[in-house]
Design a protein around this nucleic acid. Structure first.
Lengths: 227, 227
DNA sequence: ACTTGTGAAGCATTTCACAGCC
DNA sequence: GGCTGTGAAATGCTTCACAAGT
């Protein structure tokens, strides 16, 4: 029994987020208790997978009963550090950057809060975006001493992405979500994930093709692992 | 030698898109020939992985020399069906939908073209977004007979996502990119990928935590597999 | 009767390492 | 000497299946 956190596989962690969303919905519905089989029905992730995933972080269920929704919700929220405010800055005040500010501006009960938006374009610096003033990315390290954001979102064109990431690291950011179509590297101790929109479409283009040229009757698409 | 396409693993296909981007850059730089080791230096994907990936689709390299950039670029473009126009529609004309239209409106040399945007809100229907008129999502199946899009982007709030996906399937869409924070299911023969922004931040929140609470000196973050 | 937690088995992907070719 | 393509080994993840708990 690996009491609480050891080192969990990356796929497991990424599914935790899905479990959380499912549990929040169950809580809204007033459901008290849920079995891994019931979650399978909602998420399309096998019950064995769910139990194995949860087992990395502790023993949350009761044989014959299932999981207490509120309890599991609380524990997973802690495990993922979503029980505290998570402050984030966005670099890049273009279409995408603006949409991202709006995206998390909407929900007040989210732990994520966008506390700053930065750009390198003098035409944009000083303008307001929602309730935030666009600031000079060159001042980011200095300004983040006040903002104390630990997450950075990179929404600039590909060629500028590495430089922006370096600036974020220099600003004591611990996690970067990169939307730029570019390979970004970060030093040990900084987490990085990429969201690459063109890449997603290209991958779909491949699978759509595969489906077209299938010999027999249609086969299930690989469904991206419910990623 | 599995001449050209058999069934390639999903991770391989998803990396193909990275190889393409790298090759396009090499072509712009005027580089004629590239080895898997040189690509490793640019992409952070091991040379053995690159060679194994490419081997699923044919033998493109020459021992002692490497790969001809133009040739490999051309072949991979074919493999992924990016040598033809790929028409897409977006459902949801909110912040995100609008940003997505702009995102692909920018680049003219992309095979992806947004040919329609739809919403269910009468306040939005009829308004223009860039050069497209927002249309009633209820008319999507009918209108797509003219548009002939095969890709659909879902940019609506979570609760509406499944209904929208069903409408897209009914409209002869073969591939769906879902941005809504919801589990969507599609019938066999339709490809589906999810881009879940909140989920990405939640996962980063976990890894950033892991880093904080590391006993020894910092360790590399799992880097999301360059995903 | 139902459900969890988990070793063990099964499967998929990555990495190794080298024969063969330039 | 340098590089590809690929079986074989290693690794990592998922699924099975069941003892134990309610």
């Amino acid at each position: 029994m690996p009491i609480a956190s050891g080192r969990a596989p990356e796929p497991t962690v990424s599914r935790l987020s899905l479990y959380l969303r499912c549990l929040r919905q169950l809580a809204r519905e007033g459901v008290k208790t849920v079995s891994s089989a019931q979650m399978e029905a909602r998420l399309g992730i096998t019950s064995a997978q769910i139990r194995k995933d949860l087992s990395h972080f502790g023993e949350f269920g009761r044989p014959g009963i299932g999981y207490d929704v509120q309890h599991l919700l609380g524990r997973l929220t802690e495990v993922m550090h979503l029980d505290r405010e998570q402050r984030a800055v966005i670099v890049g005040a273009g279409n995408l950057g603006a949409a991202l500010v709006g995206y998390w501006g909407g929900f007040a009960d989210s732990p994520f809060r966008i506390v700053g938006i930065f750009d390198n374009n003098f035409g944009k610096i000083g303008r307001m975006l929602w309730n935030l003033e666009i600031q000079d990315v060159r001042r980011l390290p200095e300004i983040n001493r006040q903002l104390r954001a630990s997450i950075g979102l990179v929404a600039v064109p590909g060629p500028g992405a590495q430089e922006v990431a370096d600036t974020l690291v220099e600003s004591a950011i611990r996690a970067i979500l990169n939307f730029a179509p570019a390979v970004v590297t970060v030093p040990p101790g900084v987490a990085l994930r990429n969201v690459d929109l063109t890449r997603e479409l290209e991958i779909l283009s491949y699978w759509a093709k595969q489906i077209d040229s299938l010999p027999g009757p249609a086969e299930p698409a690989p469904a991206a692992n419910q990623r």
